[in-house]
Simulated assay, not measured.
Amino acid sequence: MVIPPPPSPLPEFVYKITLEAPPSPIPESYPLSELDQKDGFVHLSTSWQIPTTAGLFFQNELSFYLIKLRLANFDQASVKWDEVEDTNGCPHLYGNFGAKDVVDVKEFRREEGETWGEVFEKEEAKAWMV
């Protein structure tokens, strides 16, 4: 498998999707999900990947949280851009993140019958995910 190169330019932010509200305050080392523990990296998405990622893996959920992380906080050698489905190179963080890396957290909700793509077309979502 050929690992795609990172996007150019690199995004300022990457996002972690979580079904549960993050702990408050955010700890120095964020608790890893079962999937992240099993795979050996933290699954992340760019802003333009969120609608696709949400549609593929969270289509049955009516809400989730996005944790906004500043990409420049991570050693770029620890971030691999891996090809997954139709997401065009999702960032995978080999390591962890914590309070110092978190810029913001926001809960997103969708109505029954509404797609995640429709949610992320709204101006409020677009403005937050710059």
Rank of each mutant, 00 (worst) to 15 (best):
L93S: 00
D101N: 09
N88W: 02
M129E: 09
F58N: 12
E20M: 13
G98Y: 12
V79S: 01
P51Q: 02
P27C: 11
Q37P: 04
M1W: 06
G98S: 04
I50C: 12
Q37E: 08
E12D: 11
T115F: 12
I26T: 10
V2E: 08
Q37F: 04
D82E: 10
A54E: 00
Q76F: 07
K106G: 00
V102I: 03
M129D: 10
V119M: 11
G40Q: 13
V105Q: 01
K38L: 10
N96I: 14
F74H: 04
S78I: 02
R110N: 06
S8C: 04
R110K: 15
N73S: 04
P7A: 12
W116V: 13
F57A: 08
G113W: 06
G55S: 05
L66E: 05
V79T: 00
L44S: 07
V79M: 00
G117Y: 14
K100G: 03
V105I: 13
L69I: 05
F57Y: 15
L93R: 04
R109N: 03
L19F: 11
Y15Q: 05
F74M: 09
W48Y: 15
A54N: 06
P6G: 14
M129T: 14
R70P: 00
E111T: 13
D39M: 15
E123P: 01
P6A: 13
V42N: 02
L93A: 07
L19Q: 15
L19S: 14
P7I: 07
F58L: 12
